[in-house]
Design a protein around this nucleic acid. Sequence first.
DNA 1: ATAGGTGCAAAACCTTTGCTGCAGC
DNA 2: GCTGCAGCAAAGGTTTTGCACCTAT
Lengths: 178, 178
Amino acid sequence: MAVRETDHSGNRISGEETRTARRRAVGAGSPLGLRANRIEAECRAKGLRLTGQRRLIAQVLSEALDHPDAFDLHRRVAMLAPHVSLATVYRTMKRFEREGIVKRLEFRGGHARYETAAKRHHDHLIDLETGQVVEFRNAEIERLQEAVARELGYRLVGHRLELYGVPVPAKERSEEDL
Amino acid sequence: MAVRETDHSGNRISGEETRTARRRAVGAGSPLGLRANRIEAECRAKGLRLTGQRRLIAQVLSEALDHPDAFDLHRRVAMLAPHVSLATVYRTMKRFEREGIVKRLEFRGGHARYETAAKRHHDHLIDLETGQVVEFRNAEIERLQEAVARELGYRLVGHRLELYGVPVPAKERSEEDL
DNA sequence: ATAGGTGCAAAACCTTTGCTGCAGC
DNA sequence: GCTGCAGCAAAGGTTTTGCACCTAT
């Protein structure tokens, strides 16, 4: 899954391919045989019917290294089973989201993208040059969000935090005169 | 403008009407005579033509206590000048956004909403029960965002932070056993 | 058997755009 | 008068939905 947990500070969780253009391919290591995955287990646990389409969509999303949108998912699924419709992808994502199996993301640009909900909570930094999305965690920010909501008289039930940045070339990183 | 800067901690900036349903009306204190406003001044400063439509849209947005979407703006403007088209509202918002005169917001639910850019930077807390949007500032969160981006090798050029909360009844606020 | 899922195509929804005429500067 | 802006309607892209058929349980 290429989940790099490398940063010494514990902020960086993962990187991924770009998403700017619609040019990704299905992960090469995905034979037609359906492997069990966490999403299938969750379907069973929540009483969702385990249809062939759902199995495929679950597998494709489980194996995704990026944050695909419905169109991406459909394209990848269609490589395994061409008859699956885009409507089914949308319906499945909606259902999965309602069951807490996937998370719907809405970065700038309008259309929704999805990720499995099983991972630990994290937020996203979007590389504006490549479209790459980097996941990160920051406990202090989380704490402050709770505090802000409480001060305003609310109980925090959700949040959305996205950072948009441009990469700093390595040579500039030491000079702090930016 | 009902910008309440009340909270002792400095977090709360303003409150507004609900937006869940499309049932707002134009601010009652807006006679047909066009008052000068900051947006008009900015138009002049940036060489934008000051058409009647832009004047109206600028006025309506200046006087808005909430964060209206294009449809809202159009409805409010149409009460003053029924011939103004929705396309003009969209084009004007796009142009104003490009000039840094307005900010485009995209909360959950898809469609864009707008606010004047002249205010100091702030983020938003959305009341999930009423749809009310509360603006707040938190310098510490801002600092941490910068730090996270830097650690990941990026220069932060923008961010989006939205908190979603449900109001805590006053009587419960003292009990911290939530 | 039956409730629920799927495919297809059409609609809904928000937003943009082509074109023609008009108005601000 | 030129250029940019407006109105209208049509197209754009994403997501949802009506309906008939199918299938997992």
